[in-house]
Design a protein around this nucleic acid. Sequence first.
DNA 1: GAAGATTGATGAATCAATCTTT
DNA 2: AAAGATTGATTCATCAATCTTC
Lengths: 177, 177
Amino acid sequence: VAGWCATVPGPLDYDPIEDARRQWPERWGGDAVPAMSAVGAIVRAQLLLGGRINALLQPHGLTLSRYHALIKLVLTEEGALPLGVLSARMEVHPTAITSLVRALERDGLVRRDRLRSDRRTTLAAITPAGREAAEAATVTLNASRFGMDGIADADLEAVYAILRGMWTSARDVAPAD
Amino acid sequence: VAGWCATVPGPLDYDPIEDARRQWPERWGGDAVPAMSAVGAIVRAQLLLGGRINALLQPHGLTLSRYHALIKLVLTEEGALPLGVLSARMEVHPTAITSLVRALERDGLVRRDRLRSDRRTTLAAITPAGREAAEAATVTLNASRFGMDGIADADLEAVYAILRGMWTSARDVAPAD
DNA sequence: GAAGATTGATGAATCAATCTTT
DNA sequence: AAAGATTGATTCATCAATCTTC
């Protein structure tokens, strides 16, 4: 149990998923073992990536959430989005956007404007400082392949293609309301 | 934007990762696109799974964390573990275990005992009610393949095998302290 | 002094209720 | 009344500091 704890699970002598895979079939049958393994792996990978990526972003004064928001703005050439749209694109609760954008504003990375055409909506607009931060952070993340170095591109594309099936399949279309 | 919001991102007209994949190469080159896509997919998958699994567990009065703890105890035929060991196996902070186990105790699913041999350590021991809850919940989860139905077993095993490379590679061995 | 666990404080995520503008 | 955003209360994860037992 080396330097892990704290968000960053390390490489382990005890592999939790392997252990579960060993014991699962005799207790509950083997049917769900692939699913159980994949779910475990996804959860653990997400935890690990969170730690790695946040560590990469820390020198830039960003977290993954804050970087995510900045990138969404950068990718909309106007560099601005209504909070509601930003919330939808990031897929986080509308309420979370409020505090997130407020924090970015405190650091001078975005500006908040009321829309003149409809003064209900607040516009989050990226500032020059915000663009710089996003660019620099992206260079860092690209260089370390988003914490994924060590895995081949073909494998990464395979993971992407498979997981994409979770939201492109017709499985949980909206229940016709 | 149908019934999603609230933890459960639905199937979307606007696909955030596809959008990023389109714009990434011209801005920052294509090198990190597979990594970026995989990371995005993992984060989104984890979010989706969290929603689905917690919905499946709710009728059993459990959450994913609480189920996770119970399963770890069930899988140790004594049905009991010191909090420190449980914390390590679940890879959550030692402080988080305290409140988690306390909540399980409140519901009568685990018992807390001080070890007679070393009265510093607290033992979390699963109760009969805890075993029942874990068994019932496992049947439910197995039946819906942990929220992964719709994806072929071979693909799930592929995802597992690839992601496993993140913690079995020598990449981040402890920095020799 | 060190291991094991706990407490209290801070920050993020979520939900209901509120406020403003349309 | 409805859309957009915000506030306040709750919960959970995290970190530092504390308390007990060895």
